[in-house]
Design a protein around this nucleic acid. Sequence first.
RNA 1: GGGCCCGUGGUGUAGCGGCCCAACAUGCCAGCCUGUCACGCUGGAGAUCGCCGGUUCGAAUCCGGUCGGGCCCGCCA
Length: 592
Amino acid sequence: MRTHTCGELRPGQIGQRVRLAGWVHRRRDHGHLTFLDVRDRYGLTQVVTSAQQSPAAHADADPVRSEWVIAVGGVVRERPAGTANPDLATGAIEVAVDELEVLNPSRVPPFYVNEEQEGLDEAHRLRYRYIDLRRPQMQSQMLLRARLASSIRRRLEADAFVEIETPSLIRSTPEGARDFIVPSRLQPGRFYALPQSPQVLKQLLMVAGYDRYYQLARCFRDEDLRGDRQPEFTQLDLEMSFVSERDVMETVERIVLDVTRDTLPDRPILATPIPRLTYDQAIARYGSDKPDIRFGMELVDVTDAVRDTAFRVFSDAIVSGGAVLALRAAGCAGYSRRELDELQDVARANGAGGLVHLAVEADGTLRGPAARFLDVAAGGMIEATEAEPGDLLLMVADADRPRAAGAIGRLRLEMGNRLGLRDPNTLAYVWVHRFPMFTWDAALARWDATHNPFSAPVWEEADRLESDPGSVHAQQYDIVLNGWELGGGSIRIHRREVLERAFRLMGHTTERMRDEFGALLEALEYGAPPHGGIAIGLDRWAALFADQENIREVMAFPKTQSGSDLLMGAPSPVTDVQLEEVGLRLVDAAAR
RNA sequence: GGGCCCGUGGUGUAGCGGCCCAACAUGCCAGCCUGUCACGCUGGAGAUCGCCGGUUCGAAUCCGGUCGGGCCCGCCA
């Protein structure tokens, strides 16, 4: 049907007879001469019909419109002098068409494929995703994702990792995200769950001796959606045996950097080897466990500097054991009331009671609503923050230090955006590790795994599991890219007795443990090697590579925030027969 | 579960109590055009302003509800 693609022809083929097939990208009709740009995923080629030279083909081109699918036959020729198009890879040539076949006409498309359009309603794009995916930008994003996945596979295969598929119909477990459940027809009243991740399965594979496993695994979580969260998504899931935390981090780091350079050879990577921060360092310096290290503007602890002021907002927080944290926004002393209010809103929206702002005047004094209370501390604050005239100091005080850090960490990102410090071209990977093993859940009055309940404690700290769980760290590591949590993993607990202790601390009874994690617990008794691994979000990785803020942009058929597939119309009701087969009856018939 | 924002010809926007049976650009249709590449020129069609209800002499515009979409908090081991 075609001899070449639409991105292929060059002056070297001049004089050759060719056939192209594709979509009509644009039509320029000059009456006795018609230009058609024919497009496929490889590119665009201009073809010409002439009433004089090829009357039949010219007549056939008459009804052809945007997005019609056509095949053309003709001879490649050089464009007349002065009419070459340097913006087009195929712009030096054109095809003089003597034969044009309409393979399929198209209705007028619901939006433009042939030009970029700002503000196009995303619901509309999703409703006609097959057209949206024709847009050159979407095609390049899908192809980038494919290159990334391909690079991952090649790199892992070269490193002796074995790809093993795990089932999508598995057993529901509590903990973590809500499961999607699938009713069983063969056993009415029983349900499968779709995996939130192949976590337990890959650990069983380690017990089975496949000491380097990987999978591009589809995962499902029935939780509320966000721009970076879909109900189903893809993880690069990998697991290794006979490894320490350091081994895994070093192996993964080499893979990540190789894949990055392979997929995006021209994008600068901020720092290699990938910097490592402990969780405590990340919180203290950036106010986040997923810091964007493309810019500095680190948080400054001014608690000591303001300890003796009469400013109640600060002193109350300090007396309660809290902290006062500051951010130095260089050159922002001139911020307007409105800009300061917006920053105030950012602080409040992220847990701060308020935001104290002080501008540094030319004479080194401070100006701001709270300045008169802070006179005595002015020198100390300026020294601690290294502030200079013209700078703006932003401060958050809270009895709860992590809360203050979180709020000011978000302000840091906001200022990074406002000051244009988050260079979209740079890729800044960073490791965050040594997380606290447990977080106290005040509502449930129990300890909860900070990340993954299977994560091992730092072995030397394991004897404090019961006596002082809050002080135990996990052998856990997150890899962060440009402020996004890209992935996380850990060394797993490979001894039954330790895993049971950890579960018990999280409030599991022995019966529940045996019921829900029986297979894993038992497997650990049959020669489970020390092991650990990581899971990296492929969608997020692709989105960051494609410079998109939304993973929907790198997914072919994503769902909306309410979980709808606007193209296929899912979720949908099912028939009474289908319900009956699986032994279900809807409680509220009206809900259908 | 909660907060905020959006919904006007096919598409993107303007209009934000009467001047609007709605404007602009583009797309679409027709005619003309032999070197365009966002081709050009001329003409034309196309919207009960998401839906329901209310306020008002009068609603695209104000209010309430609802549906759809987005962002955020909670949630996401």
